[in-house]
């Protein structure tokens, strides 16, 4: 009988816990990303493994090194660096040189995450910061897209534009993109058999990951649904007004980085609101900005910038969506 109480614990209530932890959440996210990784290997070959491994390893090493330099506990056990590495890799074109992926990973972890104070304190999604830095630093390498070679066999630097890019560049020079709808069928978009960032193409695999996240309560439906909904409604509106120049909504939904962004990036806990209504606003805002960039912006795709811009609004959204406190007559206006 353990009568010796020196092994007993005094701690504040509650003395029960859901059993979930940051580490488990991150592990679930990693697992949820696996179908998309498999799909990308299928379509883009070993390049996706090369970039994924580069990013993940660089992120882990960078995190460990920075934590050590800052004389803080090592933070790699929480696995968040792995998630950042995976997400960054998923946002890169398959042909990107390895050293650029290293630069992006370093920027994501060192500047965007650890300099803000590490997990929980970063204002912006580190993976997206890494991607955007690469995009503005190496615009050519970041917009050179390989043709998926599931059917064609290993490619010899055959490049073509992403669906959104092809559409935008064609119209920019005043011509309708020839053969667009034959090249990109709904089936190929759902499967992921199209050019694009290595993890963003396979909608089916991403949805499977999303279901895992929802089931394990790592995300709620608010942000993805609001994001998809806003994009769908706006795309539908644009298409109705001018069906020639605007893609049908299904292409806006399936052909860019929307599924990867809405399911895995816009739902990053640290950089998104804590209230349900705030999450809804966040998702809708992402959708709005994405569509504005796609329609009028210089880039064909706007998911990354949309999420980063909304990240910066998160504190404000949190402030204005405070729940009504039980027993208070009406919401107090935030000071």
């Amino acid at each position: 009988m353990s009568e010796n109480p020196s092994t007993w614990v005094i701690s504040p209530s509650p003395h029960a816990h859901s059993g979930d932890s940051v580490q488990r959440i991150m592990l679930t996210v990693i697992l949820a990303l696996m179908p998309a990784l498999a799909a990308s290997v299928l379509f883009f070959g070993l390049d996706s493994l090369r970039l994924t491994a580069t990013c993940v390893v660089t992120c882990i090493l960078a995190e460990a090194a920075v934590r050590r330099l800052m004389k803080r506990d090592s933070g790699i056990a929480d696995l968040s660096a792995v998630v950042t590495g995976l997400l960054l890799a998923f946002n890169l074109p398959p042909t990107l040189p390895t050293w650029m992926a290293v630069v992006g990973s370093l920027f994501a972890i060192v500047i965007a995450k650890q300099l803000y104070g590490g997990i929980g304190y970063n204002l912006f999604n580190p993976a997206l910061v890494g991607r955007c830095v690469l995009l503005v630093s190496f615009p050519v390498a970041m917009t050179t897209w390989a043709t998926p070679h599931y059917f064609t066999g290993p490619m010899d630097a055959v490049t073509m534009a992403t669906p959104l890019g092809a559409w935008k560049t064609a119209w920019a020079s005043g011509q309708a993109p020839a053969g667009f709808f034959d090249l990109f069928t709904t089936t190929s978009l759902l499967l992921g058999n199209r050019p694009g960032c290595l993890g963003e193409t396979s909608v089916i695999a991403l949805v499977l990951g999303g279901v895992i996240l929802l089931w394990r309560r790592c995300i709620t439906w608010h942000i993805p649904l609001a994001y998809f909904g806003t994009v769908a409604v706006m795309a539908f509106g644009f298409h109705k007004l001018d069906p020639v120049h605007n893609l049908p909504p299904v292409y806006h939904l399936l052909s860019g980085g929307l599924f990867l962004g809405a399911i895995f990036m816009a739902t990053d806990m640290v950089t998104t609101p804590v209230t349900r209504s705030g999450m809804f606003i966040f998702g809708a805002g992402c959708g709005l900005i994405t569509m504005l960039i796609r329609k009028w912006g210089g880039y064909p795709e706007g998911v990354s910038f949309a999420i980063l811009i909304m990240n910066s609004l998160t504190p404000l959204i949190n402030r204005f969506t405070r729940p009504r406190v039980f027993g208070h007559v009406r919401k107090e206006t935030p000071a």
Partner: peptide, 29 residues
């Protein structure tokens, strides 16, 4: 096994406490 010792980590703003709070507070903040 039922009451493991815990080490706190920084808040990751998951919002679960906000959803769980019966008083409508923001425990994380």
């Amino acid at each position: 096994a039922r009451v493991p010792l815990f080490t706190s980590m920084p808040c990751i703003s998951c919002g679960r406490c906000v959803t769980a709070c019966p008083s409508g507070l923001l425990p994380c903040t």
